[in-house]
Design a protein around this nucleic acid. Structure first.
Lengths: 224, 224
DNA sequence: ATTTATTGAATGAATGTTCAGTCAGTATGT
DNA sequence: ACATACTGACTGAACATTCATTCAATAAAT
């Protein structure tokens, strides 16, 4: 899963670079943590399992991270950063057209790199503990803050442009919620595939913004 | 939380009825388990906490349920039953009109009795462990099976009636996912209220079925 | 030689499970 | 009526296990 990266790093960085090796170990342990969360769930994730998964010794986690708790926080932080970086990049790559931007954001959530069983399972594990752990809640919430605002802005713009009757904030909220709900279902299994989930999301976006999208993609009309 | 029921039961059943007392205890323990899940999360829920919450002794759970695991399964089963009973009842109360039925199902998910912080938190706790516990997965999935099919049927009917262009299965999936996603957000806090979440769901439904609903409710036209 | 990374056995706290005993309520015998 | 035996819910201390954490010893790099 992350062995490939480790191998690469080993070849390129092994001889020189004590500092780099340290960060490498931390990444290695974080990836092993995600594996364990996905395989055994939050409650059954043990440091022993993480260490085994990384092919290292038992005490290693407490050396690189101070405690199990900090390892988990670092793992969630890592996932939150990765997620934010991804949608931000996709948003910028979409150019200036709001319709294209919204389309890109929806697609970003179902990107192969982000929308993995493994990572969805890890997200869900943290969600399950978030209510009783303020730190998790903050990191899960921080994920939403900018994301949600971006959606609201796009809905406001598209509403004005297309003359839709919906409330922009409500629509933005239901859109975001729908995608998270699809993630949840993907994780729960049920034979739902990433493609099917993406298709369902598209279905709704097309229904909500009929003057901007079809199932084939973004409509090319400027404005009325 | 459930003390009221206990008192009632005590008055009506205490003298006679050893059997009834047993089921009462089990319910009491299940409610205490939901409390603990909501307050401390799945990972931190201990039998001691459950027993304390129920005001009973430490060994009580292993007496009424065989193990911690079975207590948790019984708790999830209880919640799943309650949920299914609720939406089934609301569906039947809605009469024969598909539009009214869909409207009722959406409203049911945000009903005061079902959509409690406490219960949402417990659901989410189980979701977080579902991937690694086939038993949980089955119970969470069973919840979906009939529910999902009902939504698909309604979408098919309304599509034919309203001449909508969406794919019915995709729309049904995105609808269900949206409501689960809203539950998730409700649980994560963020100052989102049940009313706001419900409004967002309505926004979605109105946008998707414009010939059947407005923000005010179900449109009264028969067909074209 | 010194610093740094790593190991793995030891430790102790947390907690699920067991079980011998307590006690109320109920039936049985006188 | 009264005493006795019995049943079954309930208790709480003892036990066993799991697991995060610590740390002295070791290996590796500079």
């Amino acid at each position: 899963m992350m062995e490939a990266d480790v191998q690469t790093e080993t070849k390129t960085q092994e001889k020189r670079g004590r500092k780099a090796s340290k960060e490498l170990r931390q990444m290695q342990l974080i990836e092993a943590t995600i594996d364990s969360l996905a395989k055994r769930g939050y409650a059954e994730t043990t440091l022993a399992d993480v260490a085994d998964g990384a092919g290292l010794s038992r005490g290693i986690v407490n050396f690189h991270f101070e405690s199990k708790d900090k390892l988990l926080v670092a793992t969630l932080q890592h996932m939150a950063d990765e997620y934010a970086n991804h949608w931000t990049a996709q948003l910028e790559a979409a150019g200036d057209d709001p319709a294209r931007q919204l389309w890109a954001l929806v697609a970003a959530d179902f990107d192969r790199r982000i929308c993995t069983r493994r990572k969805l399972a890890a997200w869900c594990a943290f969600w399950g503990e978030a209510k009783s752990r303020p730190t998790y809640q903050a990191l899960c919430g921080a994920r939403d803050e900018r994301y949600q605002q971006t959606f609201v802005s796009l809905c406001v713009t598209l509403k004005a442009d297309g003359g839709y009757g919906f409330d922009a904030e409500g629509m933005a909220l239901s859109l975001c919620a729908m995608m998270e709900g699809l993630w949840l279902r993907l994780m729960l299994g049920d034979g739902l595939t990433r493609e099917t989930a993406y298709a369902a999301a598209v279905e709704f976006v097309v229904a909500a913004f009929p003057r901007h999208f079809t199932h084939a993609g973004v409509l090319e009309n400027g404005r009325s």
